[in-house]
Simulated scan of single mutants.
Amino acid sequence: MRSERIRLFLTLPHACGYYSDRAAQNLVLDPAAPNLDRLYPGALAQGFRRAGGHLYRPRCARCQACVPCRVPVQTFTPDRSQRRCARRNADLTLHPTEPVYTEERFALYKRYLRSRHPGGGMDEAEPEDFRHFLSAPWSPTLFLEMRKDGKLLGVAVTDVCVSGLSAVYTFFDPDASARSLGTFGILSQIELARERGLEYLYLGYWIEGHPKMDYKRRFRPLEVLREDQWVPLDE
């Protein structure tokens, strides 16, 4: 990450969000550093990810299941299921917009969390949770809105860096689950990266065999970061 100096912190062990019987730790770039915006592209290339105002990378003592992954957008080829998803959503309009809070977006966000994470605490989100989780003052974020006849059906939150786009989070109308808007959001970000002449869409972490994380292998070719080298997943 250039020659800029930055402090790194290791969090205390905490409950893993993916495996209930494991503890997790994260390596975090100093959230008070004044140059996070400049460090962000290089951090992405080194396997970091943004959540709110923090850039982090898993650093767990007994587990290396979380593997950074990215899609090289120029060589990406959708499979049959992804092509069907694109056709199914051809009636939607996409609006890249500023990452600001609105009542409409927050209402959709709350409905999504209540449907996907009932009883886990996230389903009781407040406006500040929306603001603090999805964007940060220094982050180059945009909200890619998906609308049908003006109605907001989904939002893909993406960060725009010189090294590529980073898919931060997608939330959508639970009643529109048949549209597979999570997949459509990734396909839309791949196309947006192509339009902007960017090389990659960073998808965060892939976990082999995990029911919520293994889907990322379907976006091919997928590259993963192993021993500080990006290599095709198939290798």
Score class of each variant (00 low, 15 high):
T75D: 14
E98G: 12
L108C: 07
R84T: 08
R80H: 14
R62G: 07
A90W: 01
A125I: 04
P68S: 01
V71Q: 11
R111F: 02
D79H: 06
T77H: 15
R70T: 01
Y112E: 00
V73M: 06
S81R: 13
A90C: 07
F106G: 05
F106I: 08
R88H: 03
R87H: 14
Q82F: 05
C85L: 07
R105H: 05
D91A: 12
G119K: 12
P58A: 00
T77Q: 15
K110V: 15
D123Y: 07
T97M: 08
A107F: 04
P68H: 00
Y109K: 08
P118A: 01
P78G: 11
E104Y: 05
V67M: 05
A61C: 06
Q74L: 11
D129W: 02
E103V: 02
E104W: 00
V100N: 13
K110A: 13
L92W: 12
G119Q: 05
L92Q: 09
C66N: 13
P127F: 05
F106C: 09
P99D: 11
T77S: 15
P96C: 14
E128N: 12
R70H: 01
G119Y: 11
R111D: 10
S115G: 06
P78W: 12
L92F: 12
V100D: 14
Y101R: 10
C85W: 01
E103S: 06
T97D: 14
S81I: 04
